[in-house]
Amino acid sequence: MAAVLTAVVALTALTAAACAPSDPPPAEASDTATDALRRAVESDDTTAIRQAVDDGADIEARDAGGATPLITATKAGRTDAALALLDAGADPNAKDSIRDSAFLYAGAEGLDEILIATLEHGADVTSTNRFGGTALIPASEHAHVSTVRILIEAGVPLDHVNDLGWTAIHEAIVLGNGYAEHVETIRLLLEAGADPTLPDGDGATPRELAARAGYDRIVALLDAAA
Rank of each mutant, 00 (worst) to 15 (best):
G65W: 13
T34H: 03
E153D: 13
F131W: 08
S30V: 13
A194G: 00
R212T: 10
E191D: 14
S43P: 01
D44I: 06
A135E: 06
G203F: 08
I59A: 07
N129K: 00
L188K: 09
L209C: 12
A20V: 09
A139S: 02
E208Q: 14
A180F: 03
V174A: 09
G176K: 02
I114A: 07
D202P: 07
G89F: 04
V183Y: 07
P196D: 08
G107K: 13
D100Q: 15
T72H: 08
D159Q: 03
E171K: 04
A18K: 15
V183T: 06
L70P: 10
I114D: 12
D35T: 10
A48V: 05
G203K: 11
I173T: 04
A224C: 09
A17F: 15
H160C: 00
G214R: 00
V9Y: 05
A84R: 07
A29Y: 05
A57H: 05
L175T: 09
T15F: 14
V9G: 02
H160D: 06
D87P: 14
A225M: 10
G201I: 11
D44W: 03
L37W: 00
R50P: 08
P138W: 01
A204V: 06
A27V: 12
D202V: 07
A108P: 01
T185F: 00
R217L: 05
S43R: 04
A210H: 04
A16C: 14
L11E: 14
H121P: 10
G155W: 09
R50F: 14
D87A: 15
A27M: 09
A226C: 10
I59W: 04
T46A: 11
P157L: 06
A102W: 14
A82Y: 12
I169L: 02
V156K: 00
R78F: 11
L83E: 07
L175E: 13
T15H: 13
A48S: 14
N177S: 05
T6M: 12
L151Y: 05
D216A: 04
P199A: 08
I150N: 08
L136T: 02
P21V: 10
I186A: 03
E181D: 08
A76K: 07
E153I: 12
I49R: 12
R130L: 04
V148L: 01
V148I: 03
A57M: 07
R130W: 06
A88P: 02
H144E: 14
E208I: 05
A16Q: 14
H182D: 00
A82D: 13
Y105G: 13
A84F: 09
D44A: 07
P92E: 10
P199T: 10
A192G: 12
D55V: 08
T147I: 15
D91V: 09
I114E: 13
V41P: 05
A90E: 02
A40E: 01
D80P: 01
A210L: 02
P138Q: 02
P21H: 09
P21K: 11
I49Y: 06
D100M: 14
R38E: 09
I150C: 10
T72P: 02
A211Q: 04
G203W: 08
T68F: 15
I186Y: 04
R78Q: 12
H182P: 01
T126C: 06
H170I: 11
H144N: 14
A13C: 03
E181R: 08
E42T: 00
Y179T: 01
H160I: 09
H142Y: 15
G89A: 03
